[in-house]
Simulated scan of single mutants.
Amino acid sequence: MVISDAHRLLFVHVQKTGGSTIDNRLDAVLSDTRQVPGIDRHATLGQILAAEPGLAAYWTVGYVRNPWARMLSWFRMVERFKERADRGRRGADAFLKKNHFIKGVADACPDFETFVMKGPDQWTRLRTPQVRYLTSKTRRADFIGRQETLEADLRAVFARLELPWEPLESVNVDKSRPDYREVYTDPMRRRIEEIFAKDIAAFNYSF
């Protein structure tokens, strides 16, 4: 999450939707960015508002992504950290020791099929619809952008906030990731369709 009290802005960071790129840009142009102490940076809107109810009045922004592409991106991130740790990269090894979720997924899901078919049963965050991150019982994000049109949508956010714009420098980009349609079997495709039915309906995504 990123909060700017001066601009009355709340950015809710949904995992694997380009959020790190957005975090970096907001931190670069806003001098007062902060988070809510004591809660995860990927907290849901409901969790954020429970911790700091006054943020309900802030203009709230979040991003979503095609669920099939998002899950592949998530697995590839885990895979990269495991490969780096296995090669003795000190930073990756330290990260895995600290991040029990990533390490647990890396140990339990040796391939993408296992990650899709079994991972969501073991880890709640792998089956949490993106729409849940961006809604609470009384609130919904005011602007929901898409990873697929990240730069254009973020430019619209900056225009709304009257902030200066420069082309994005994306981070955590997996340039070798295959087209997600090439790596799903029919059972895997249906599994994601079932888990993220709310996202597919809310944001009109398709395989």
Rank of each mutant, 00 (worst) to 15 (best):
F115Y: 14
A108H: 12
K103F: 01
A92H: 08
P120L: 11
M117D: 06
E113S: 12
P110E: 01
Q122I: 01
R127H: 03
P110A: 02
K98P: 01
E113I: 04
Q122G: 03
D86S: 12
R90N: 05
A92S: 13
P120A: 13
F95E: 00
D111G: 02
D93G: 01
G104R: 09
G104S: 07
R125D: 10
F101T: 00
D107Q: 12
G91S: 14
A106Q: 09
F95C: 00
W123L: 01
R87S: 15
M117Q: 10
N99C: 06
N99K: 05
W123N: 02
K98S: 12
L126A: 11
F101V: 00
V116Y: 05
L96R: 00
V116M: 07
T124Y: 11
R125S: 13
G88A: 15
H100D: 13
T124M: 07
T128A: 02
K103N: 11
K103L: 14
D86T: 06
E113F: 02
G91M: 13
D86P: 05
G104W: 09
D111S: 07
M117R: 07
D121H: 10
G88D: 12
A108K: 13
R125N: 10
K97M: 03
C109Q: 10
R89A: 13
D121I: 03
C109Y: 11
R125P: 03
F95Y: 13
E113G: 09
A92P: 04
N99E: 10
M117E: 05
T114Y: 08
K118Y: 09
P120I: 13
K98M: 06
F101W: 06
T114F: 10
G119L: 07
R125L: 14
G104L: 08
D121C: 02
H100C: 07
A92K: 05
P120V: 10
D93R: 14
D86V: 04
K118D: 15
V116K: 09
K97L: 06
L126T: 06
T128V: 07
W123M: 02
A108D: 06
G104D: 02
E113P: 00
R127I: 04
T114A: 11
K98W: 01
F112G: 03
R89V: 15
T114L: 09
F115K: 10
C109R: 10
T124F: 07
G104Y: 07
A92C: 04
F95H: 06
T114W: 09
A94H: 01
G91F: 09
A108P: 01
D107G: 01
H100F: 14
M117K: 10
R127D: 05
D121F: 03
F115M: 09
R90K: 14
R87W: 12
A106R: 12
L96C: 00
A92N: 07
A106T: 04
D93T: 12
D111I: 09
H100W: 14
L126H: 05
T114E: 08
R89Q: 15
D121A: 14
L126C: 08
R90G: 02
C109W: 12
R89Y: 12
K97H: 04
T128E: 08
V105Y: 14
D107E: 12
F112M: 11
A106D: 03
K103V: 00
N99I: 00
R90F: 09
G119C: 07
R89N: 15
K98Y: 03
R89T: 10
G104F: 11
I102L: 08
P120H: 09
T114N: 04
R90E: 13
